[in-house]
Each structure stands twice: as C-alpha cells, then as structure tokens.
C-alpha cells in the first residue's frame, strides 16, 4: 500500500472519514505520520476555539478582578483560584461525570458528554482563568501616566477602556499570553486521557501515538513523531503571536518594545 493511499484512508480518520478500522499490524512509518497528524486536527481545534472564546472571558475576568467593587471582584477571584488551583486532569474528570449525571436527568446535556463540546468547555474556562490572571497582572502595571493623560483628554468609561487601557493591557500581557497559548495547546493532549471517550477511535494525536505504542511496544517511533508535530505547531503559534506582538507595539520606539520570550510548557 502506497503512502498516498494511506493518506487517503487515514488522513481524516480522526473525524471519522475514511477507513473505519485502524491498522492492526505491520505498521509503516507512513501510517504513524498520517494517523498522528490526523489526530492533530483535534488538538488544533481545541486549542484555537478555546483560546478565541477564552480571550473574551479572560478580559472580563481581569477587569472584574481589578474592580474596586466587592461584588464583581470576589467571584472573579474565586473563579481564577478554582481553575488555577486544581489540576486540569481532575477538572476534566469532574466535568465529564457532571455532564453524565446531568444527561441522565435532562437529555439536553447529551452533546456535553462528547469531547468536542464538553472538553472544549473545560478548556475554555481553564484558559480563561489562566489568561485572566495574566491580563489582571498587566492591567495593574499599566503606566499611571497613560491613564492620567486619558483623564486629561476627558475620556471616561468605555472610550477610555477601549482606546487606552485595553490596548496597553494587551501589549504588556502579550509575551506571557503567548506562553499561555502554547501551554493550552499542549494541554489539549489530556482530553482523551481523562473521562472523555474517543468515540469510534476518533482521538487526538496523543491518542493515536499511544495506540501505536501499545500495539508495537515500541515508544521510540510514535512519541518522537508526536513531539515533532508539537514542536512544529509551537513554532507556528510563536510566529503568529510574534506578528501580533509587532502590531501591538508598532507605535513604540524600537528599544522600548516588549521582547517575546519563549518560555512555555509546565503542566497545569
């Protein structure tokens, strides 16, 4: 079987398109690459959607946490502590069984027990909490002069936030936020190892890598391939975020721009 044939059969296997049965024996290197790459679709989906949605909640959380009003500040503080203080792994498990319980009472919840929605919600809340903390830190280190200048121009409320506070917050938080994005992207591998079942063996990259490792008892081929894919996509993330960082800092003189520091990956 040629490699092209393999790509046709397994290229979209993780979405349920193509050959139904996974290869069982005589694994070729091509099959490793194609199937693990096909699983990466899920990792990218979880990463991008959770990050995009999480961005908005994170901004709201940061503003709420910096608010002088107790009624806004306390819930935001608790939310951030809850998601940053407990392992993501346990959060996945808890959410899965919570949705399972809800499903048995209200059938509305049945899509929530599938990974594409249930795990996405957990990742979304989790990344919102982590980036909320990052944005909160940036919010507190906005130069006093900037805000005073805005006041002097008579800006208040929403225009001041939209034009002065928010762009500066993003600019200051961006290097840390890049790390958070990489970190979230790596965390997506946990999804199918927690409660969420890989229905009809449609899993993510790590799911297929461990499938190969289980079948061949040889960890030295699938995991390095997985690592290669992840390093590749980490580089893509770094490039894209670097471009955004350039744009955020475009008004500053060269030497005052915040440098991107590549400092990713601790477990959450």
């Amino acid at each position: 079987m040629s490699c092209f044939q393999t790509i046709q059969d397994y290229g979209l296997r993780s979405l349920g398109i193509g050959e139904r049965l996974l290869p069982r024996s005589d694994f070729t290197l091509c099959e490793h690459f194609v199937l693990i790459g096909s699983g990466m679709i899920w990792n990218i989906y979880f990463g991008i959607v959770a990050l995009l949605l999480g961005f908005f909640l994170a901004t709201a959380l940061a503003v709420a946490k910096a608010s002088p009003r107790r009624i806004l500040r306390k819930p935001a503080e608790w939310f951030i502590f809850l998601f940053r203080g407990s392992p993501l792994f346990i959060q996945f498990f808890f959410a899965y069984f919570l949705f399972l319980n809800l499903k048995s009472q209200y059938p509305v919840f049945s899509p929530f027990t599938a990974a594409w929605l249930g795990a996405l919600i957990v990742l979304f809340l989790n990344t919102a909490a982590y980036s909320g903390e990052i944005f909160y830190g940036a919010l507190r280190s906005i130069p006093k002069g900037d805000v005073e200048a805005a006041d002097a121009y008579g800006m208040t409320g929403w225009p001041r936030f939209r034009r002065i506070v928010w762009p500066t917050m993003l600019r200051l938080a961006w290097p840390a936020y890049t790390n958070e994005a990489i970190f979230l992207f790596h965390a997506t591998t946990l999804v199918f190892f927690s409660g969420f079942p890989a229905w009809q063996q449609r899993g993510d990259a790590l799911y297929y890598a461990s499938y190969f490792a289980d079948k061949t008892f040889n960890p030295f081929v699938p995991y390095p391939i997985l690592a290669g894919y992840f390093i590749l996509f980490t580089l893509v993330v770094v490039t894209v975020f670097g471009l955004i960082n350039r744009r955020l800092n475009r008004h500053l003189p060269q030497e005052r721009r915040t440098k991107m520091r590549f400092r990713p990956n601790l477990i959450r």
Binding site: T189, L190, L206, A213, F217, Y223, A227, N265
Partner: peptide
C-alpha cells in the same frame, strides 16, 4: 523536555 507536552513524556519514559 520543555518543548514537548509532558504527558507524552510520562507515557514515553515509563516504557522506555
């Protein structure tokens, strides 16, 4: 070790 998801390492090292 820092560049790769650590969970992959946990799965890899135990067998390796």
């Amino acid at each position: 070790v820092r560049g790769v998801p650590d969970i992959a390492f946990f799965l890899f090292f135990v067998i390796a």
